[in-house]
Every structure is written in C-alpha cells, then in structure tokens.
C-alpha cells in the first residue's frame, strides 16, 4: 500500500445554491504527481483550493498526511493558528503568479521565511537566494516582478513556495497565463521538482505534461470526479464517454 499525502473523502462544496463539488473522492499518493484535468468550470480550481482550505468545503473530509484540514471535527472550524500551521507545509502556485509587486524577487521569497518560519533576515535572504538559483534565477534576484517576464515571475512564485520546504505543492494552471514560448521553462522546473519526489497536485490544460510527468490523472466534470487512474488509461484508453468527448475537443482545438 502506498501512503496517501492527501485523502479527499466525500467532499461537497456549494456556492449558494450551486454545487461546485459533488461527493468528490481522491487519494493523492505521496511523492507522486497527480494532474487534475477537465473542462472549464468543472471544479478543478475549487477542489485544489479546498486542499489548503483557501476555499471552505461544506462537508466531507480532506486529510493532509492524515490530519483533517480546516475542521477540528465535522462542522467545527479549526483555529486560525492551527490552519496556518498546516498551510506552512503546503505550497501553492497560482495561474496569475500573485507575486508581491512592491518587493524584489528575493524579498518575495524571503518574506514567508521571515514572517512564517521566523528566520532572521540574513538567513532568509540566503535561503531565498538558494531557492531562486534552483529555479534558474540567480541573476534576477534583485529585480522587481515588473522587470521579469511571465515565465520568470512564475519561477519566482515556485521558488517562494519551495523555499518554505513544503511537503505538498499545489499548482493551479501554472502555465495558462504564459506566452507559449515561456511555458517550457516553467514546466522544466516542475519536472525537476517531480523528479526530486515532491508530492504535487497540478491543475493543467497541458495534456503533454499530464501524459509524460503525471503518475496519476484525475478527470473532473460538473463538480464530479469522474475517474482517477494512470495517465495512459485516462488519456489514451479512456472508458468514460465524458473523458472521450473532452479529449476529442482538446485534440480538435490543438490540431490546426
């Protein structure tokens, strides 16, 4: 049996009367890459954001390394402090990078180390430099985000997350906001992380990445988790007609 880094059980999420997640079950194996795919509006981001409780799920359970996130017991919210404690070990990378524009690349990465991990400024600066070197930005450390390309900004955002030494990384369409020629550099960094054994959950429209890097691919539609299996069985021999039709649309759109 493989250890699960994230156990999602029977999760439901409502926005008013609209049900964004319907009885979602998913196990994310530790040290592996799980890709979440599916049509727009199917609930991929919502599910990803429930994993670090940026979005509150209404019922069910999400356990990170066995520990329930967001609630102490069903219906009883966890304290802010306990939630922050859990979030420290979950890195997140957003589609829009969300770097802080008033700080240099290095300050962006150091900030969490100082405020959350309590490191000294010098120590945090040194760790930030290491993290930035790792994503290939040693020479851009003192640039502000406005002086970086989209791909570089997203790599800073990845460095900001990995500097915190997370046990789990969540990516929400990390390359969707990038010009096509900048996608590769971000995917390369992500592949390196995957090769090092980082547990990753990646919402993506990059089927190539899902096919070649993912260990598991989960397909969502209309708030339901339709299937989770090996990339081959989801992407090449899909059984469910909903997956087949999604892939057909994908191939049509990407062949010109």
């Amino acid at each position: 049996m493989q250890a699960s880094a994230v156990e999602i059980r029977n999760v439901n999420k409502f926005y008013g009367p609209f049900q964004a997640l319907k009885d979602v079950d998913l196990s994310v194996p530790a040290g592996k890459v799980t890709c979440l795919i599916g049509p727009s509006g199917s609930g991929k981001s919502t599910l990803l954001r429930c994993i670090n409780f940026l979005e509150e799920y209404d019922s069910g359970e999400i356990r990170i390394d066995g520990r329930l996130i967001g609630y102490d017991a069903p219906g009883r919210k966890m304290s802010g402090r306990a939630l922050r404690e859990m979030r420290r070990s979950i890195g997140m990378v957003f589609q829009q990078f969300n770097l802080w524009p008033h700080m240099s690349a290095r300050e962006n990465v150091a900030e969490g180390l100082i405020r959350v991990r309590g490191l000294s400024k010098t120590e945090a600066g040194a760790r930030a430099a290491e993290a930035l070197a790792k994503v290939g930005l040693a020479d851009k450390m003192d640039n502000h985000p406005s002086r970086l390309s989209g791909g570089q900004q997203q790599r800073v955002a990845i460095a900001r997350a990995i500097a915190m030494e997370p046990r789990l990384m969540l990516f929400d369409e990390p390359t969707s906001a990038l010009d096509p020629e900048l996608v590769g550099e971000v995917l390369t960094v992500m592949k390196t992380l995957a090769a090092e054994g980082m547990t990753m959950v990646v919402v993506t429209h990059e089927m190539g990445f899902a096919a070649h890097v993912a260990d598991r691919v989960a397909f969502m539609e209309r708030g339901e988790l339709v299937a989770a299996d090996t990339p081959d069985r989801i992407l090449h021999q899909p059984q469910d007609p909903r997956i087949q039709s999604f892939l057909r649309t994908y191939h049509e759109r990407n062949s010109f």
């Binding site: 940026l54 922050r84 957003f94 900030e111 969490g112 405020r115 959350v116 955002a157 915190m164």
Partner: peptide, 16 residues
C-alpha cells in the same frame, strides 16, 4: 488590489 495578492500570503501561512 488583486485578491490573489493576499491569497498568496495566506497560502504560505501568513497571519492576517
């Protein structure tokens, strides 16, 4: 301010 600015901080465990 884009909402993501604060979200990125919350996501790494920063206090309000």
């Amino acid at each position: 301010l884009p909402r993501g600015q604060a979200e990125a901080a919350v996501a790494i465990g920063m206090a309000p």
